[in-house]
Simulated assay, not measured.
Amino acid sequence: MGINPFHVMKLKYKEPLLLPKTINSSDIQAILKMAYDEQNKATTQYTKSQCNRDVAVLELLFATGMRVSELCSLNNADVNLSARFIRIMGKGAKERIIQLTNDEVITTLTKYQKQDRELDESFLRNRDGHRLSEQSVRQIINKYAKKANLKMHVTPHIFRHTFATLLLEEDVDIRYIQKILGHSSITTTQIYTHVSTKQQRLILEIKHPRNRMTIH
């Protein structure tokens, strides 16, 4: 029986690095503005309650960077607005606390929280009073992204990636971002350092003194 040369060959297949898609902070602002505009235009109690819910969904995603599954799993007991924090149950039943530091976000969530809580323990609910689904969250984002005339298909994960990337660009230590996102390994969080090279290029183009020098 001949020797199979493949037995002694060591092959490594390196999967291509898929950088997370993000949007600009101005795009996030445009989406939020569309949601608040709809909220201000609402006339009936039903449309007001739905708009309050939609704004709460968008603000929570951007304020915390949580996963859509974590968002939909939030219960009333997890949202402590007087103490200004959210308790999130992440992957592997790992609990983390995220502080809410923006007054407008607190005001928005308080307005939504004051709506009829009914008997359902879930914080975010659909029109029937049951727990909001992940698909419904995607539809909410898509609705206001279209109203903001964004060409890119915006998903809950893009909100999460944008949250992380913007923090990194503000020089937040990657270990803090890891903890906020609920990553068990820093390796997962480090992918955002690749995304921030876009900002690095922009900084070097605008700020580097060599670009203001004329040699010839």
Rank of each mutant, 00 (worst) to 15 (best):
M1H: 15
T110G: 00
A164T: 07
D116A: 07
I86G: 01
Y46H: 06
T155I: 11
N75P: 09
K41D: 09
D78P: 04
L19W: 08
Q190D: 00
R210G: 06
N102S: 13
L109V: 03
I140G: 09
A35S: 04
R125N: 02
E70I: 06
K21Q: 14
L61W: 08
L100C: 04
E134K: 13
H208N: 11
F62V: 14
Y176Q: 12
C51V: 04
Q29H: 12
H183R: 03
R117Y: 02
S184P: 03
I88Q: 02
Q139N: 15
Q39H: 09
P16R: 09
S133L: 10
Q115D: 10
L167T: 12
L61N: 05
L150I: 13
D116F: 05
N52A: 09
S184Q: 04
D78M: 01
M66A: 08
A145P: 05
D120S: 06
H216D: 13
N126D: 09
V105M: 03
R87W: 00
F85C: 00
S122M: 05
L32T: 05
K91Q: 02
L32N: 08
G92Y: 10
I215M: 12
H208R: 07
Q139R: 15
L100S: 01
N126Q: 03
P20R: 07
D27L: 11
T188L: 00
L61C: 13
K10A: 15
L32V: 10
D103C: 04
P20Y: 11
H157I: 11
K94Q: 11
K21S: 14
P209T: 06
P209H: 04
L74R: 01
H7N: 15
L204A: 13
F163W: 10
S196Q: 13
K94Y: 03
T22C: 14
K14W: 08
L204M: 12
G2M: 11
T108R: 01
L19K: 12
T64K: 02
G90F: 03
L11R: 14
I191T: 02
L168I: 13
L61H: 08
S136N: 09
K94G: 07
L132Q: 05
L61R: 03
L119V: 04
V68R: 03
S133G: 08
N126M: 05
P20N: 11
L32E: 08
N142V: 12
